[in-house]
Write a protein that binds this DNA or RNA. Sequence first.
RNA 1: GCGGCUGUAGUUUAACGGUAAAACCUCUGCCUUCCAAGCAGGUGUUCGGGGUUCAAUUCCCCGCAGCCGCACCA
Length: 534
Amino acid sequence: MSTSSAPANLMDALVSLCKRRGFIFPSSDIYGGLNGFFDYGPLGVELKNNIKAAWWRDFVQRRDDMVGLDSSIIHHPTTWKASGHVDNFTDPLVDCKVSKQRYRADQLFWAAVNVETDEPFSITLTGLQSNHLGPDKYITLIGYVSALESERTNEELLEKAETLKRKKGIRGKLHPLVPNDFTYANTENIPFIPSPALGGINGIDKVDQLMPPRSFNMMFETYVGALRDDSAVAYLRPETAQGIFINFKNVLDTGRVKVPFGIAQIGKAFRNEINPRNFTFRSREFEQMEIEYFIAPDADWQKCHREWIDAGLAWLESIGLPRALLSEYAHPKEKLSHYSKGTVDIMFKFPFGVQELWGFAARGDFDLTQHQQFSGKSMEYFDEAAKKKYVPHVVEPSVGVDRILLAALCAGYAEDEAPDEKGKPEKRVVLRLSPRLAPVKVAVLPLVKNKPELVAVAEQLHAKLQRKHVVFYDQSGAIGRRYRRQDEIGTPWCVTIDFDTLANGTFTLRERDSMKQERIDEKTLFALLDEKLD
RNA sequence: GCGGCUGUAGUUUAACGGUAAAACCUCUGCCUUCCAAGCAGGUGUUCGGGGUUCAAUUCCCCGCAGCCGCACCA
């Protein structure tokens, strides 16, 4: 067996292959591309469809407790008020003009530093303005401190305040600090607040280091109808999940479902990412496969959560992502949204780092309750067994189609060696995609094209296979070249029609990864495909 | 969004202040009895816009796009 490895600049090789062979193109390529958008070519769309089909079959059709849904991309705008996206999908960011650092306003803490004394400071001597608080009690503002959010933000602020006091040579008692995050800063105090990158300590002089917080709304806006006024504003959905929640009642009333059950949806979602990066990994338009799995409020959500994570891991392995490249990341409790009981991500080791692939959030009854409130419609479910009404809780497995596709390409791309016709080893590029995902399942190749009888048999077999599978017919060039061509696009099998085929109906089956060949007949081939593609 | 680097054919790269080249890929024909063979032929390129210049793909500016780092990623 020859050695196989991924090149150091795997992403470059992959991007090049994707374009060269028609998997993924930059969107609007002829106009110079558009940042954060991609188009899937002839092979890319097959691969993508295969991922979606496999997921849908395994998680919807092959289960008794799942139903599907395909909601519109644009929902009633109130949907996004209820979900919190209108208010929370914006992240106010603060830029430091000097260090060029950027902070999230809600993670940047600051405090005014005041000192208590029994006599006022003399303005002329110190430049400080004291305020009279009571008998023999004066309070004086001596500066500002700042620190980034951490386990010891408050201690850090306090230390900096002490340092400031010491440096200024000021005596007196430190007035208790009142730390605020930067969303509570205003034009009055922003010029005085120091940037943490520059020490985070400042006196009472204007330093103008930080910019006022700026909001970045991640939702794409559009207008429904011809009128472009505020009442017509609508959003392209930033996630498919809300389409499921707003259809919960409809599915409940018509779908003959009983808790616990899940609703699955595959569809496009849009996020105005500040900075798309890493090929298709963070795109502004992408496709999600989401499930909302509804359970009783008193059910063991942790067990359910765990089962879905395990199901996700098993499925990813089944489509060819090696377990060694997968890991789990549990979001720290303090970072969770107030309604989330727990979120675990399945991570994948991409060439550009370990990144989130599939998120599993336990969202409680937050979403349904919100929609119940905003719509005025009951989201309650009557549980026949328990004889009671409740709003179900939910576990949400959410994964990006494009990310799985990218992960499959990254995991599958390999360069190894194959002998040429003289037996000399040559470099070979091979995409080791699992047969279920491979865009082309079989290539049918007549050994030589100038023998009409071989071509005729090959064409017949091709036509027959084509009725059930994506197959490729290729008669141009030497046989080895044609094998390599298929290796590069991940075709798992090639069948070669030769002169023995005419005599006994058998042909050569050549396997992509091992390059092994065996003689089989048509019946065996179809049986093999049925088994491996199931 | 900031900083650095970059942009020539589908891909990888070369060259030049005087109007662009190679390899691979792709396509056609011939040849070919199992791992990128050979011969002949064909398509196709200076990211966009401005400026300097007699002349710009080359130098300058602005956009756009990509890569790397920082920041961000509900």
